[in-house]
Nucleic acid binder design. Structure first.
Lengths: 201, 201, 201, 201
DNA sequence: CATGAATGAGTCTTCATTCAT
DNA sequence: TATGAATGAAGACTCATTCAT
């Protein structure tokens, strides 16, 4: 019986899942609430029992998914002992997330850039939290003398993320997928590592 | 008399300029055609004498501005003799464009990622052309033995662009502008150069 | 145990009381059934066990309250022997009802005027019964030679009621309440009495 | 050519006229904007070129019609020399307005009583201006020694208006119209005059 | 009897686009 | 060419009512 997905929590989840799909395919503004309702197999009005309005669906989506992503990334990073391996791991996880949940990734990609005024602040907060995972690795590396002191961790963390995001996008869009994601991840992280490393003696 | 901006060409230009401003501030979907008209000091209907519809304004905007950007970048790159200097130059020009025309940059940023179905193909074409400027430098470097052969120029060109784009975005958003754009440009290009270079000897 | 208000009759009453409050504050059309339910501390669905629909709440409200008002007024009038005193008494009771139960009065005030087609007939029936209390006093006075024969009792009864209703409304709305209701009641009834009286010899 | 009713001003007027009809028949809340548009023979959207929203239609309706009514009443009152004749004239004009424009009257009748918060204040202002026409006659009469000093002009003006309004409503609703409006007007004003007059000597 | 989650019909309002002038 | 008043399709959101529990 426990399988029947009719509990309130499930409906909330179902609507969010439906929204991810619909938003990713049509973009936020071209998505109709009724379409999300249909995809979630609920009535139009039901959506408004779980979300304040269309915007709120997007926000909740961020709230939940970004939170998950941050947690997951932290766990993954912790698995690696070596600082430079943490870098690689970050790259791999980041790229894979786009492979595993491309719809969600597509939404993040756009909304991270454009979003209505009042979302912007919230989105940025979560995003910065995400970037801190990288910048703190860099800072740690600088303390340990592995990474060059002159490097600004904030800027490079953004650059690193931007590089990965763009490569992931390319991978999703290119129909043939000639280059594997893991190779790309290695390539990018290698470049950054080599670029940042302290050329000691 | 030459001052009066009523020639057809002027009106076309004025509408496009107005669109850049309006789209950048409100996003494409939250921008009203009437608002663009007002900003351009033109009647609503006049817009439809120069553009097929709202989408067409955005497309034309791309057509013109991306073309200009590509031309400009090529010229700038040609000014540098040294291959690695070309890299730096690319970074500087790219970042500066965001400083000099932030409205336009904001539009590009979003539309490069999301755009209605039918724009996608077109946008990509122009974008790939832009990226080719970098990838061909890389390829040249590989031929000359300066850059490591194992590196995939397509992927790295995207990574490089993504890194720059994100850093530029950060710079635009951060209110204090503590780090100068040129320092950032140097930082990013240094990392990539060092990361790609052939460690001969 | 008798305190627990869960008997069916109580719930019916509670819903009606809640409706009076809610309708008076927001008007019929701006009142939500769910709001009445909340005010009555009942589930939304429960309302539909006691009333056919939202309209039916209003009708029942009339049915009960108008009936009570008519009975009460008749009793009060009967307390007075003198015909002209009955007039005054009517005015006082009428005005006081607005003071004692302003929410109910507010609803009556509006619904007596506007109400959906199907309510109109019913409302009028009850209202006419109410007005007959006055008109029959007038008629009695005409028989007794106290009130001028030429006066149309139906019209004057309406005029009298209208005058009182408006004065009561004014009293409710005016924040300072400078003039007491009883003074107003006397003023109005005096004018009507003096205006209708037979100036015998 | 001047006859063709397509000028902006005409459209404004047409929408207002349509609104009077539609509101009077269905009540404000049961009236659809689309219905008003249809009645006015314009597109739904056109309404919003002339009015901010549905509420604004009602407000404008008041603004214009109450203003007219006040002007008209003042003019009519001025035609009478005798103070008591002014009273009669007021009654006649007031009652006739309901006969001549029953739709408008029906709206005024209800909206004067119930209306959304923000209308209330405005409505009252205009209404008080209207009532001042009566109260100032009373005051004048008191100065001239014709009307009893003890009478409160504010209260009586409201009572007088309420009496007339109710009688008019009765007249509109009664199908047979046995009693003429002018007789009713005379009856009511006679009662009030006699009731207020100073019994000198 | 009681609940309250779910439903979905119903409407206001917006805004890209047209077209008579 | 230029105008801007007019159009009307489209969609977010509300809330009375139902019904499975």
């Amino acid at each position: 019986m426990a399988i029947v997905p009719t509990k309130a929590e499930d409906k909330h989840k179902r609507i969010l899942q439906a929204a991810i799909k619909v938003f990713a395919h049509n973009g936020f503004y071209n998505s109709k609430v009724s379409e999300i309702a249909k995809e979630a197999a609920v009535a139009d009005g039901t959506i408004y029992l779980y979300f304040k309005n269309k915007d709120d669906i997007l926000i909740s989506l961020f709230e939940e998914e970004m939170g998950k992503a941050i947690e997951n990334m932290k766990e993954e990073i912790d698995k690696e002992e070596d600082l430079l391996d943490k870098f690689k791991r970050f790259a791999i996880v980041q790229l894979n997330s786009k492979k595993e949940n491309p719809d969600l990734a597509a939404i993040m990609e756009v909304e991270l850039r454009q979003s209505s005024k009042f979302m912007k602040e919230y989105v940025n907060r979560k995003f910065i939290e995400y970037l801190k995972i990288i910048s703190s690795i860099i800072r740690e590396g600088q303390k340990g003398g592995i990474i060059k002191k002159g490097i600004n961790p904030t800027i490079v963390s953004r650059a690193f993320w931007g590089a990965l995001d763009e490569v992931a996008r390319f991978w999703v869009l290119s129909p043939k997928k000639r280059v594997s994601l893991s190779v790309s991840a290695e390539l990018i992280s290698d470049i950054f590592i080599k670029g940042m490393i302290e050329e000691s003696g």
